[in-house]
Design a protein around this nucleic acid. Structure first.
Lengths: 245, 245
DNA sequence: ATTATCTATAGATCTATAGATAATGC
DNA sequence: ATTATCTATAGATCTATAGATAATGC
């Protein structure tokens, strides 16, 4: 690791990540999610990486740029899953359940509680608006699926325009994984896949939909997603066999 | 308003609140909840009040002390409601539903989104630990009620120690009002009482409990709470008649 | 020559304190 | 005399830039 161009560091690396940029992102992810964006100085990030404060600026133009990269990486996989599951020819309740399961598992299994970045009050800064918009797009996928699932379930027994608070709940219940991690410590003791299943089931029940019949098709859909993204922290304990679909 | 001791301000008051302290708390509540604690300078608070930065320190010893008062005021009513409802001789599901309804209504109806103070990453500061602990106590009331409600409902059909993720959900669903307000703007268009009812119902359904039979006794319990605290932003549209209990 | 680090620092904050000032209250 | 404000400022940050230095790569 002493190889490579450039003046050597004074300290040997103390952060995971093959490049300096990745090490900076890892340190910033920890600090931003635990003490906040403004409360994290560039000096503290540099100290956590083991470089000098000014050296950060060889890799990122501003402190905010670091946050932008972290936000981008956090919202992208969930948004891709939402698009893929919405396009797939799945029963709507299965798509919603699978999206919740996948998203909640990701939130629970990431090294740092990156979902907390979306709760930072500093996100009202205009330059971060694109990422806030992406998160709202994801929220829209959830509520669209919820609206359609309700229509399918009760076939018009409810009003034609369902309560916006109600159809927001699957998204909010998935999001609760962020607050739980923030409250109970970064390392959650539950299995991410199991945790995600509990939240996905609850999201459907909150809408008044029985999750029992969707569990198995949803499991297959999530496994297909994981195979596609090959990020796959998702290894359910179940007997599910990939590729049967 | 030009009366009273002390040197006059350069600017006439621009904030609600009969005393300077209340005006400072109102301005700080807006800024802390929208841009965050560290990102809010004492100068910005003072500007929002219409006084000089140094004048804040006549009323509060430190910036953190302002946050402490806001946190105290936010958690106290919910905690009092939880204690009162737990002590009351109510069916457990009714107590849980009423607590959720009351708490969610408060979160939705406060002038600023004060619940967001509990999501500030800066709360990991040791001096704020007492308030974090109080919030966790409130969370404990919710989950205790949820555990007991599940036992009563299915009478041992489930395991003896229910899933901690599951019994945390009524609390998390109520808390979702904070994120919704942060996402959709401070002024919510729904009636607080109606909003709270939707979340209280969903909390029970998430546990697998039908909220229909508890709605009416819960309404009476919430009205009794409001009469007791006489803070009462709670005016349900229903035909419920206070005092019949 | 290029790259990644380093040292040094400018300029802009930000929190909190010291002490002056202008009102009311006794 | 007491109170609530004001002006002024010390001391500690904090972000970002300028330019030197020490490696590799050609």
């Amino acid at each position: 690791m002493t190889t490579g161009p450039g003046r050597p560091r004074l300290t040997s690396p103390r952060r995971p990540g093959s490049s300096a940029s990745e090490q900076i992102l890892d340190a910033a992810a920890e600090l931003f999610t635990t003490v906040g964006f403004t409360a994290t100085s560039t000096r503290k990030i540099a100290d956590a990486v083991g470089i000098r404060q000014a050296s950060l600026y060889h890799h990122f133009g501003t402190k905010e740029e670091i946050l932008e990269v972290l936000l981008e990486r956090t919202v992208s996989p969930a948004l891709a899953a939402a698009e893929s599951l919405t396009a797939a020819e799945l029963p709507v309740a299965v798509a919603l359940h699978a999206l919740s399961w996948y998203d909640a598992s990701q939130l629970a299994s990431s090294r740092w509680n990156l979902g907390a970045l979306y709760l930072l009050p500093e996100l009202s800064s205009p330059s971060l608006a694109p990422f806030v918009a992406q998160r709202q797009t994801l929220r829209g996928y959830y509520s669209d699926l919820a609206v359609r699932a309700l229509h399918e379930e009760v076939s018009g027994a409810d009003t034609d325009t369902p309560d916006p608070i109600l159809v927001d709940l699957p998204f909010r219940i998935v999001e609760s994984a962020i607050a739980t991690r923030a409250d109970d410590g970064n390392d959650i003791d539950a299995e991410p896949a199991e945790y995600g299943l509990t939240l996905a089931d609850a999201g459907l029940r909150a809408l008044g939909i029985d999750p029992t019949p969707v569990a198995e098709p949803s499991r297959r859909a999530v496994e297909a997603l994981d195979d596609a993204t090959s990020l796959a922290p998702f290894r359910p304990s179940g007997s599910g066999d990939t590729g049967t679909q």
